[in-house]
């Protein structure tokens, strides 16, 4: 039985086994390969998407549990989110594999997160390249930009 969910604002009918991982639905059924798989165990956060506005690991979400929800992926930001520009300008992305998940988790932090909110809110996203501080600088800078 098809499952309907809204992906990046578009209502989408998916015909797949209800236990299929949301990650696989996005990558394989929808061709949205911006969402990455780093571990398959909910540790690295590379597969982070927003489900009804909150960050989840899409490798741990069965399609059945996404029925009727709104899913936002990196593609849904359409390159226009201030965080995206800021990650380029401030070194928040190096190899880039954690970046889509990291940005989605950062989106969920809201407009102007405190240092503490960033460190706690991104503790579920592993980055092996940056040591994280360039990511905080990127988010800080985007917060400044969005205020203007």
């Amino acid at each position: 039985m098809p499952i309907t969910l809204t992906i990046n604002g578009t209502r989408t009918r998916i015909t797949a086994h209800p236990m299929t991982r949301l990650l696989d639905v996005l990558r394989e059924d929808c061709g949205l390969t911006g969402t990455k798989e780093g571990c398959g165990e909910g540790e690295c956060g590379a597969c982070t998407v927003l489900l009804d506005g909150v960050p989840v690991n899409s490798c741990l979400v069965p399609l059945a549990q996404a029925d009727g929800t709104h899913v936002a992926t990196i593609e849904g930001l359409r390159g226009r989110h201030p965080l995206q520009r800021a990650f380029v300008e401030h070194g928040g992305a190096q190899c880039g594999i954690c970046t889509p998940g990291m940005i989605m988790a950062a989106v969920a932090l809201g407009r102007k997160p405190s240092m503490d909110a960033m460190r706690v809110g991104l503790a579920g996203n592993l980055c092996r390249c940056t040591g994280y501080w360039a990511i905080y600088r990127s988010i800080r800078s985007a917060a400044g930009a969005s205020k203007r």
């Binding site: 390969t33 969402t35 593609e75 930001l77 390159g79 995206q84 990650f87 928040g92 992305a93």
Partner: peptide
């Protein structure tokens, strides 16, 4: 100077293609 990295935009938009993509 801190010029914009060549691969920056593709990485922050999810357009960059890794092998599994």
């Amino acid at each position: 100077r801190n010029v914009l990295r060549k691969d920056g935009v593709s990485k922050v938009t999810g357009a960059a293609r890794y092998i599994d993509d």
